[in-house]
Write a protein that binds this DNA or RNA. Structure first.
Length: 489
RNA sequence: CGGGGCGUAGCGUAGCCCGGUAGCGCGCCUGCUUCGGGAGCAGGAGGUCGCUGGUUCAAAUCCAGUCGCCCCGACCA
């Protein structure tokens, strides 16, 4: 009986654990349509906080929001050869509207490059109109063969930034800058460390000149591409005749970038921080940071405790911490549920701090704080509760990142490695393997075929090994790149 | 699309082989007692057994078909 309250363990079946924990923590639920999901308030609350923070970061880097339509003429998709080839298999196409067959089918956007650059072409005449720095928050649809809650669903929410520049240097700078924004967000807010780098040609976005990505390691040691930033060069501007007059008076195609992160990040959050008790939401993204569980026996005591809890809540709410924003506190006033049952429930939902407030505490003018991440209990005075809670939240945020980084590093493999050893790792415990690569597509494809591992990124300098790689993991020829290999979602 | 599994109350399931009017746990509702780690007792509500057809006096159970979902694999953020 107690067993059906327990989650499957990560060790026994990571995939079952993931599905259960997402459903039971009420982040999301399956929809009646195959491959689609409903994002429930507890999940959407996290998304809203992600959005708010990212949106601020985009604005701070000079971007504005706009909105482009859901429907794209089918012919637009076909204008960029690589792009259409990449997306054709997963398009949802509308053929009828208003009871009539449409003259031209409309594609439900899988991404918005085509419609956006078609519009930019219309808006830009001169280099003085550049750069254009626009972001949009939207839903997109990709008809995937196999879906998983948050990680890959038919429809998902994301943001897509689309910029246009007068020079390739500026476009490259923008591409790198936004990758940096993603990294900062993921580490500082999600407490999810990432490796940044460039994608191999085989893995890059359909239509991009170069794709950069941030890659995180999940607890099953698989990689998760958490965000991408593309330097599109002039591929789309040529396809859509997006030109501008240069300072010198000539005509040139614009240089574009696009970059995006999606609700997939929530899946990353779950698989980075979740444990066998449930999910763990880092304080900065938690819709509720502190849950107060009042403890009482008799009715009169109940009234007193609720009053005390409410008072503490108000005090915390009013407390201005270093970072702007109020402490987000919830009092669990439900009757007929024992405190212990509430503890389990809030642990499942990943609230960073639980505050237990009972008669014994009130007597001593104190409260008990319990960290979700470590389970450590501390007793603090109600006099300093605001500061203590804020400090603890800060500490939790930090230690979640540290724990995730330690886990990643202890499952990363560096240095010269034989292909046999590589296979042992990939087919056994999994993890990130940094190894030399000759740059040949044949070696890359063979390794993927034989081990299911792919090049996640060609890591940026800071993530590369101290000693340069000498030989290609597969063919033994001189290594041209150091590649990060892993199985991935 | 290939392989595997599953559709019985809100959730998890038993019953199916061997047809005979559907059971259990959790949850839910009411009341009393409880309440510092998943409460106890008593009473109660809730099911066209995924759908369609067939066999039969009789189908959750047997047969045929069909729909859906989940998991594993091939494609992808």
């Amino acid at each position: 009986m107690a067993d059906d309250k327990k989650l499957p363990t990560r060790a026994a079946d990571f995939s079952a654990w993931y599905n259960e924990v997402v459903l039971r923590s009420e982040l999301a639920d399956y929809s009646p349509v195959r491959g689609c999901m409903v994002i429930r308030p507890r999940g959407y609350g996290i998304w809203e906080r992600m959005q708010r923070q990212l949106d601020t970061m985009f604005k701070d880097t000079g971007h504005e929001n706009a909105y482009f339509p859901l429907f794209i003429p089918e012919s637009f998709l076909k204008k960029e050869a690589q792009h259409v080839e990449g997306f054709a298999p997963e398009l949802a196409v509308v053929t009828h509207g208003g009871g009539k067959k449409l003259e031209e089918p409309l594609v439900v956007r899988p991404t918005s490059e085509t419609i956006i650059y078609a519009m930019y072409a219309k808006w830009v005449q001169s280099y003085r109109d550049l750069p254009i720095l626009i972001n949009q928050w939207a839903n997109v649809v990709r008809w995937e063969m196999r879906t998983r809650l948050f990680l890959r669903t038919t429809e998902f929410l994301w943001q897509e930034g689309h910029t246009a520049h007068a020079t390739p240097e500026e476009a490259e700078e923008e591409t790198r800058k936004m990758l940096g924004v993603y990294r900062d967000f993921m580490e500082s807010y999600m407490a999810m460390p990432v490796v940044t780098g460039m994608k191999s040609d085989a893995e890059k976005f359909a239509g991009a000149v170069r794709t950069y990505a941030v890659e995180a390691m999940m607890q099953d040691n698989k990689g998760l591409q958490a965000g991408t930033s593309h330097n599109l060069g002039q591929n789309f501007s040529k396809a859509f005749d997006f030109t501008f007059q240069t300072e010198a008076g000539g005509t040139e195609y614009a240089w574009n970038t696009s970059w995006g992160v999606s609700t997939r990040m929530i899946g990353g959050l779950v698989m980075t921080h979740g444990d066998d008790k449930g999910i763990q939401v880092p304080p900065l993204l938690a819709p509720i940071e502190v849950v107060i569980v009042p403890i009482y026996k008799a009715d009169d005591e109940r009234a007193r405790m609720l009053e005390a809890a409410e008072k503490v809540r108000a005090e915390l709410h009013a407390w201005e911490r270093r970072a702007p924003g109020k402490l987000r506190v919830h009092v669990d006033k439900r009757e007929g549920i024992k405190p212990g049952a509430k503890y389990y429930e809030w642990e499942l939902r990943g609230i960073p701090i639980r505050m237990e407030l009972g008669p014994r505490d009130i007597e001593k003018n104190q409260a008990v704080l319990v960290r979700r991440d470590t389970g450590v209990k501390t007793t603090v005075s109600l006099e300093t509760i605001g500061e203590d809670v804020a400090d603890l939240l800060h500490a939790i945020q930090d230690s979640m990142l540290t724990a995730a980084r330690d886990r990643r590093e202890s499952n990363s493999y560096r240095g010269e490695i034989t292909y046999e050893r590589f296979r042992e790792i990939i087919e056994g415990p999994g993890g990130f393997v940094y190894a030399g690569w000759c740059g040949g597509a044949a070696c890359e494809a063979a390794i993927k075929e034989e081990t299911k591992a792919t090049i996640r990124v060609l890591p940026d300098e800071e993530f590369r090994s101290a000693e340069p790689m000498k030989n290609c993991l597969k063919c033994g020829a001189n290594a041209v790149f150091e590649a990060l290999w892993a199985k991935a979602y």
